[in-house]
Nucleic acid binder design. Structure first.
Length: 624
RNA sequence: GGUUCCGUAGCUCAGUUGGAUAGAGCAACAGCCUUCUAAGCUGUGGGUCGAGCGUUCGAGUCGCUCCGGAAUCACCA
């Protein structure tokens, strides 16, 4: 009796142990397990110790039979035999000693291993059990990371370049916090400086008291109008002086409007009430306009810094550093940093009239932020045209003894260019953010209405769907390209809705949603889908292979700061699913096991697409 | 001129420690809806991966030299 009981407990224990063990193997990456097995194989066949880096496992290319491929070339030194023979021998050994391997073939120096269906289905079951699909990308030591993005100037509305900036910044936030970091979204508003005074001066001179209300214009666009107006008047003055025989450089500094601008900046820094009031009023207009655009883009911030605050901190820091002999004062009393020891140039930090420059405020902002958050990393989402600026910023901070400056990272992204080159305001080729957003939603509406699949929705519901589709088209179009690279936008050809696009991915998602609505109607319990893992089709396994790549894609997107990886992954997955959807019937399948398996595949696909697009800041409609 | 980045199909882009016959989409052409959404799927054509040399069993990927383009080197931001 006692022995029987003991035996039973022992048996149960072993079953449990086996189950846990199995689960562990399935959860681990097959590449890692294979690597171990191959190491053992080489040890036992050739009696040699192999270093891990010599065992190269990759996924088998689609044109060949198999799931994983071992590159045998590096192992020839142990086998002292031909690549073919070596591959055969190792393949045979794996077949006999590792039950997940159910077949192999050798082509040239490549050993293609076939993994059993049941292993794949078992693997998939674990994927299906995941809640967020981000479990496996969680970082071991979470950091406090500030992400600065957007950084608008208050003298003009946002344009296409800003859109790329905002989308990258926000997506970076989603990705980094998705893998477990503590991320703070910040924005630095360039609300001071000569350029701001330009639009203020132009409004004062030519505005006749015009306001957003009186003109019906969005505040940021109204202020932008005066910035342009300044420029055209200023140019006329400069040209006049040049015609009178002055050099271009002198004409530019001595044109009356420029003189007045500089006076205004001095007054502003001195706190002159009239200038400050005007500044405040125009800022209010601009911020209201920006808020609307941010809302449409779906981005927001945890903390907004203003240069009008931080430049003062910057000035203090500069003066302090001067005292400590980190900087020097020129004969005209301007203050400079000599960065020749660091391999860079001289850098101006305070003008001869004592006013601050761009670098001054950036120093102040960095120090202020460190004091506020004690970040591990401070990521600046700023265009690659400022690469040198950030190199200098970091060098100066280090010079001043701020060792945390090592955590400053310039996330340098490429410019958005038009087919004829850079966007230029003087040529009127700036692509305005608000216009573009509106245009995308109009196109989404046209396409949608033509297809006519939403006739049972109210107008409000339809508008919401058009908004999601239009924004997805725009966002995906921008995020799918490698952030580091310059990209071309052709306004003449409107952004596509077919092929490698946001709407295509949304469409795939809505198809899956549609299947599940139908399944509910059929009375299928989609919450608890049972199936065993003995058989699966090639297309089904292809899908599983792609699904398993999600977490590693997110991980590399996080470490490499590249939302584009996730965007392209979502596209690949959608394409794969659409093929599956085309080739197989899901609800029409009579065998319940198979049907449930396909439903589960569809479900996990939809979850991962949803999550991937969420990491990009792209919303998914349930129908379209 | 110095520094940095980029050249992949007609166009827009993938191609992550070097691996097999370099991939998608758009555009063009030819097919597939009585069926879970055709914003989809299948097929055809299109490439001396800017050029050359080198390292390697193997190079779009690494190194060097050219060619072409961009950014930056402001008392602009």
């Amino acid at each position: 009796m006692f022995y029987a009981l003991f035996g039973l407990v022992f048996l149960l224990f072993n079953i449990l142990k086996c189950y846990l063990c199995n689960l562990k193997i399935v959860k681990e990456k097959m590449e890692i397990i294979l690597k171990e097995k191959i190491k053992e194989a080489v040890q036992s066949i050739y009696n040699s110790e192999v270093k891990g880096e010599l065992i190269q496992i990759q996924e088998t290319r689609k044109d060949f039979k198999g799931d994983f491929t071992l590159v045998v070339f590096p192992l020839l030194r142990f086998s002292k035999n031909t690549p073919e023979k070596t591959g055969e021998t190792i393949g045979q050994h794996l077949m006999e000693n590792f039950d997940a391997v159910c077949g192999f073939n050798v082509i040239k120096g490549f050993l293609n291993l076939e993994i059993s269906d049941s292993w794949w289905v078992g693997y998939f079951k674990n994927l299906a059990a995941e809640k967020s699909h981000l479990e496996n990308c969680a970082v071991s030591s979470p950091e406090t990371i500030l992400v600065e993005y957007s950084s608008p100037n208050t003298n003009k509305p946002l344009h296409l370049g800003h859109i790329r900036n905002n989308l990258l910044g926000f997506s970076l936030y989603r990705i980094l916090s998705g893998v477990g970091h503590n991320v703070i979204k910040t924005n630095i508003v360039n609300d001071r400086g000569v350029h701001i005074c330009k639009s203020m001066l132009a409004w004062q001179k030519f505005g006749n008291g015009e306001t957003p209300e009186s003109s019906g214009m969005k505040g940021d666009h109204l202020v932008g109008k005066y910035y342009v107006l300044f420029d055209s008047h200023y140019k006329i003055q400069v040209q006049k002086l040049i015609d009178e025989g002055m050099s271009e450089a002198d004409a530019k500094t001595s044109a009356p409007l420029m003189k007045e601008t500089r006076e205004m900046l001095l007054k502003w820094e001195a706190g002159d009430k009239d200038v400050v009031d005007l500044w405040k009023m125009m800022n209010t207009w601009v911020y209201k306009g920006f808020d609307e655009t941010y809302k449409k883009l779906g981005v927001d911030f945890d903390k907004i810094y203003y240069e009008s605050d931080t430049y003062k901190v910057g000035k203090d820091i500069v003066l302090e550093a001067l005292k400590n002999n980190h900087l020097y004062r020129n004969t005209d009393s301007s203050i400079w940093a000599d960065l020749t020891p660091e391999g860079m140039d001289q850098k101006l930090l305070l003008r001869s009239d004592g006013t601050a420059v761009y670098m001054t405020q950036d120093l102040g902002t960095a120090v202020g932020r460190y004091n506020d958050y004690h970040f591990d990393k401070n990521i600046y989402v700023v265009g690659n045209e400022q690469n040198y600026h950030f190199q200098v910023l970091k060098a100066i901070l280090k010079r001043m003894g701020y060792n945390w400056a090592d955590g400053l990272i310039h996330f340098s992204y490429g410019m958005v260019e038009l087919p004829e080159g850079k966007m230029k305001s003087r040529e009127g080729t700036i692509v305005d953010a608000d216009d573009l957003i509106k245009e995308m939603q109009m196109t989404a509406m046209e396409v949608s209405l033509e297809l006519g699949k939403l006739s049972d929705f109210t107008d409000i519901e339809k508008d919401e769907i058009f908004r999601k589709i239009g924004m997805a088209a725009l966002k995906y179009y921008i995020l799918k390209v490698d952030p580091k690279k310059n990209m071309t936008f052709n306004p003449a050809e409107s952004i596509d809705f077919n092929g490698n696009t946001g709407p295509f991915i949304q469409y795939t998602y809505t198809r899956i949603m549609s299947v599940f609505r139908k399944a509910e109607q059929m009375g299928i319990n989609t919450g608890n889908l049972t199936y065993t893992g003995e058989k699966a089709g090639k297309k089904e396994i292809d899908l599983i292979k792609l699904l398993r790549k999600f977490s590693e894609t997110v991980s590399s997107a996080a470490t490499g700061y590249s939302p584009a990886l996730i965007a392209n992954y979502c596209y690949d997955l959608s394409r794969e699913y659409n093929q599956f959807y085309h080739d197989f019937t899901i609800l029409g399948e009579n065998e319940v096991e198979k049907r449930n398996f396909r439903l589960a595949l569809s479900k996990v696909t939809s979850e991962i697409i949803y999550k991937g697009m969420w990491l990009l800041g792209i919303e998914m409609p349930e129908r379209m």
